[in-house]
Structure formats: C-alpha cells, structure tokens
C-alpha cells in the first residue's frame, strides 16, 4: 500500500479510460456494502460518517495493494534506503519537491492563497538558483518552508465534495474528487509536458518512479507502526486519510473554509467526553 503523489507523465487517454472501465467492472463484481436499516438512526449516522459504500471492493483492492507492497513496493523502498545514503536521498527529495513547485504554485493561486503562492514562488527561485537546480533546499533554512498542495484540494476549496471513499490500485486511499485531481495533474505538469515535447519521456517516468520511492521510503516507519498496532489496518488508514485530507484542505487552519466532511464534521471527541463527564 502506498500513496504516491500525483503528477504523472503523459499516458494516453484511452489507457486511463480502460483502467477506469475495469474499475467499474470490478465494483459491480465485488458489489456494494449493505446500508443499515433506515430506522436505526445511530447506525445510519455511522454509515454516513464512514462514507465507504464501496467497502467490499475497496478492501479487495487494498488486499491487492498490500500484496504489491509486500513483494515489490516496500522492498524497493527498503532497498533505496539501504543503498542510497541519507544525504543522497535528501538531495533527490529536494529535487523532486522543487519540480513539484509549478503545480503547487498553480494550486495556491487557484485557491486564492496569495501568501502561500508567493512562498512557493520564492522557494522555487531560490532553490533552482542558489540551491543548484533544486538539489539543496536552501529556502527552508532561510525561513520559507514548503507546503504541499494539489488539484484535489483545489477542487475541495471550490466546493466539490469528496464523494465515497475509494481505494485506488497502487496509489492507495483516495476518493473520486482526489482521483480526478490526480489525473488532471498527470496531464498538466509543465515539466513533464516540456520533456515529453522534447521526446524525453523517460525523464518523466524516472521522476514518477523516484517520487514513488521517495514517498514510500518516508512512510516505511509510520505505516509499519500503524499496521503493527491496529486491529483493522484498512479502517485505521481510512480514518487517518480522510481526517488528514480534511486538515490539508483547510491548510491546517481550523476554519470551515470547505464543508466539513464525515467524521471531522462531528463535534470533537473532547467536547462529547466532557459533556458525558458533566
């Protein structure tokens, strides 16, 4: 299981359509979860909070992802960690982050986040020049930390709902909105478009592969720990992903800039706890 960031190189549209088509077929085969009876209000509320009507299909995809992760993706990430020293991995991470800046900048602008857009712009200028083509992130020590942003978050800020929870093959936890955002970035990345235009598509593929390795390597310890301590790894990840996404969309600010989703929309646990305790 892994959650590789968006921005893939150009893949022909028919391929994407075929993948989407086979996913729909898989959904029909696997069937949907059975909603609780309408008169059980608490069960219905829980069903809506969990937001996972495709759970049987999602769990099947998750099992596939777990197998792919166990036998291919995680060993590759562990190999990467073993072979490339930390200094080298940091340099690769910095280059990949710098290459993401055009899309992050675009999303900052599309969300009307002027300050964050300026941060992204300054970072890209500093890191691409003083930082030698992005190899050294000089902007962070200089007081301009980076941030993530993607088109799924932009759509959310524009008011697009997340839709049902969706476990994507290989890419991991998602939902229709974030999947559309990921696909849009796949086609819209300026760097990939440029090298593709020059006929160097292998550069895009290398970048995509390295992004995946970088991401999975950074998650080795956290994912191991969550899997080790959870009773239901799938349900744990589902809750963590949806909460984290909701927080990312609000850029860590508590304010309700987007309609609250699922569990986050409920009163915080501490409120309910203190009410009970009173």
């Amino acid at each position: 299981m892994t959650a590789i960031r968006a921005s893939r190189p150009a893949v022909s549209r028919p391929t994407v359509a075929r993948i989407a088509g086979s996913l729909v077929a898989l959904a029909l085969l696997a069937g949907c979860a059975t909603p609780p009876p309408a008169d059980d209000k608490e069960a219905v509320a829980e069903w809506e909070q969990v937001n996972d009507p495709l759970e049987p299909m999602n769990r099947a995809v998750f099992d596939f992802n777990q197998a792919a992760d166990k036998y291919a993706i995680k060993p590759a990430a562990e190999g990467y960690r073993a072979v490339v020293p930390k200094f080298g991995r940091d340099r690769i991470h910095d280059v990949l982050s710098n290459l993401n800046s055009p899309l992050i900048f675009a999303n900052d602008v599309l969300q009307g986040e002027v300050d964050r857009a300026m941060q992204t712009l300054f970072r890209a200028f500093m890191n691409s020049s003083v930082g030698i083509l992005g190899f050294i992130d000089v902007a962070t020590p200089a007081g301009i930390p980076g941030h993530e942003e993607d088109f799924g978050q932009t759509l959310a800020v524009w008011g697009v709902g997340e839709g049902p929870y969706l476990m994507l093959p290989i890419f991991g936890p998602s939902n229709p909105r974030d999947a559309v955002g990921m696909a849009a970035e796949w086609f819209a990345d300026p760097f990939d478009m440029y090298v593709g235009h020059m006929g160097y598509e292998w550069i895009s593929w290398t970048r995509a592969g390295m992004s995946g390795l970088d991401k999975r390597e950074s998650l080795i310890d956290s994912l191991d720990e969550i899997q080790r301590t959870s009773l239901d790894f799938y349900a744990s990840l589902r809750s963590l992903y949806r909460q984290h996404r909701s927080s990312e969309i609000k850029n860590g600010r508590g304010g309700a800039k987007v309609p609250p989703t699922g569990l986050i929309g409920q009163a915080g646990p501490a409120d309910q706890i203190s009410q009970k305790a009173q």
């Binding site: 239901d232 809750s239 963590l240 909460q243």
Partner: peptide, 30 residues
Amino acid sequence: KQTDGGFKVVDLVVEGSSMAITYRSEYASV
C-alpha cells in the same frame, strides 16, 4: 480536560488526525 486533579489528555491530534476519532472509527469497523 480540566479535572479536580489537574489537566488530563483527552485526545491527541497528529497532523490533523484525531487519535480518538481514528480508534473510534477503527473499533466500530471491527
């Protein structure tokens, strides 16, 4: 939470994810 014996932790939110909500969701699933 304020208690007679001082403060007590009732939740820890890590990077926007509440641990209490995560456990609640996971255990309900089990």
